[in-house]
C-alpha cells in the first residue's frame, strides 16, 4: 500500500488505530486501488465517513477534503453536498453495517430512490463491533455476540431469504455489489464500476473482526480463524454452495441508466428559471 498511501492518504492517520488483525484495511485499500485505477486525483474526491469502526478508522485518512456525519446521517449530508458540488467531484462514503443498514437505512433508501451520485462502501464486520460486539442487521443467524449470548435469533436483512441489496435495488439503486475483504482484485473491479456509475452505488464488503466478532463467535482472536470462517462462507455469484452466506460479485448493474439526482434537480431549476415551468 506504500505508493498508494503516499499518493492519497495522510501519514497522520495511516496506519490507523484499528485493532490488530482487523480486515478493514483490506477494504480501504481496495477502494484506494480502484481510485488509482480510474486515474483520479486527490482533488477529485470528497470523502465522507460514518461512526463506528469503519467510519472512525477511515475519517481524515484521505488527503483531500473530508467529513464525518453523525450516526446514520452521512447519506443525507452527502445528498445535500451532492446538490451543490460540481458534478465532476466524486463523493465516496466509507461506512459500517450498523450505520448503513440500521440507523441510516431510511436515508440510504432515499439516496437510492433519488439516485444520488455517490459511492457507499459498507464495511460490514457483522454487527456493532466498536461498542464491544452486539448483533446487527446482517449478523448471521445463530451468531453469538454480546447482545445475542444464545445465538442471534432475530430475522434480519440477510436471513430467511432476505437480502439488503434487494431492498436497495427496489429502492432505485443503480449499482450494487457484494464482496468479502479477501476478494482482492474482484472487489477493486466492482468498486471501480461503482465509482464510474453516475448515480447511487453501494458495495457491501464483509470484513473480519477478530477482536469482538471472532472472539465471541469463534471463541478465539486468532486472525486466521476468522478470515477462514468468512472465506468459507463466501462464494462468487452463481457458484454458491449450501453454506454460502455471501454471494460475491456485481449484484445489480444499471449504471447510468437513470437520471442522476443532482442533474435532475439542476435541469429542472434551470428550466423553471428560463421558462417559469418544467
Amino acid at each position: 500500500m506504500d505508493n498508494l498511501s503516499k499518493k492519497y492518504l495522510r501519514p497522520r492517520k495511516i496506519p490507523s488505530t484499528a485493532c490488530s488483525g482487523c480486515g478493514l484495511g483490506m477494504n480501504h485499500k481496495a477502494v484506494v486501488q480502484a481510485i488509482y485505477d480510474l486515474g483520479l486525483e486527490v482533488e477529485d474526491i470528497v470523502w465522507g465517513t460514518s461512526i463506528g469502526c469503519a467510519g472512525r478508522q477511515t475519517f481524515g485518512t484521505w488527503k483531500g477534503d473530508g467529513f464525518a456525519g453523525t450516526h446514520g446521517r452521512v447519506y443525507a449530508i452527502a445528498r445535500g453536498l451532492r446538490l451543490v458540488l460540481p458534478p465532476e467531484k466524486k463523493i465516496i462514503l466509507t461506512v459500517g453495517d450498523g450505520d448503513a443498514f440500521g440507523i441510516g437505512l431510511l436515508h440510504l433508501i432515499h439516496s437510492a430512490r433519488s439516485n444520488a451520485d455517490f459511492t457507499v462502501i459498507v464495511n460490514d464486520n457483522l454487527g456493532y463491533m466498536s461498542t464491544g460486539g452486539q448483533y446487527g442487521w446482517t449478523t448471521p443467524r445463530g451468531s453469538k455476540t454480546d447482545s445475542s449470548p444464545y445465538g442471534m435469533y432475530e430475522q434480519n436483512l440477510m436471513s430467511d431469504g432476505m437480502d439488503v441489496l434487494g431492498v436497495l435495488r427496489n429502492a432505485g439503486a443503480t449499482f450494487l455489489a457484494r464482496h468479502v475483504s479477501m476478494d482482492g482484485q474482484r472487489a477493486v473491479e466492482s468498486i471501480r464500476k461503482g465509482i464510474q456509475n453516475r448515480g447511487f452505488s453501494l458495495i457491501h464488503m464483509v470484513y473480519p473482526c477478530p477482536t469482538n466478532f471472532g472472539s465471541r463467535e469463534l471463541g478465539t482472536r486468532d486472525t486466521v480463524k476468522i478470515y477462514n470462517w468468512i472465506k468459507k462462507k463466501a462464494a462468487p455469484l452463481g457458484e454458491e454452495k449450501e453454506n454460502t452466506l455471501w454471494a460475491t460479485g456485481i449484484y445489480y448493474d444499471a449504471s447510468n441508466s437513470r437520471r442522476e439526482f443532482s442533474e435532475s434537480i439542476h435541469r429542472n431549476i434551470e428550466k423553471i428559471r428560463r421558462t417559469g415551468t418544467i
Binding site: 467529513f67 456525519g69 446521517r73 443525507a76 449530508i77 452527502a78 445528498r79 445535500g80 453536498l81 451532492r82 446538490l83 451543490v84 458540488l85 431510511l106 436515508h107 433508501i109 432515499h110 434537480i265 429542472n268 431549476i269 423553471i272 428559471r273 417559469g276
Partner: peptide, 26 residues
C-alpha cells in the same frame, strides 16, 4: 428555483437539516 436556488423535501426533519448542513458544507 426562480432565483436559481435549490428546494428539496427531506425524508424527515432530521434529513432535512442534514441536507442543509450538507449544502452549507458545499
Amino acid at each position: 428555483p426562480q432565483e436559481g436556488g435549490i428546494f428539496i423535501q427531506g425524508e424527515d426533519e432530521c434529513a432535512a437539516l442534514h441536507l442543509c448542513v450538507g449544502a452549507a458544507l458545499g
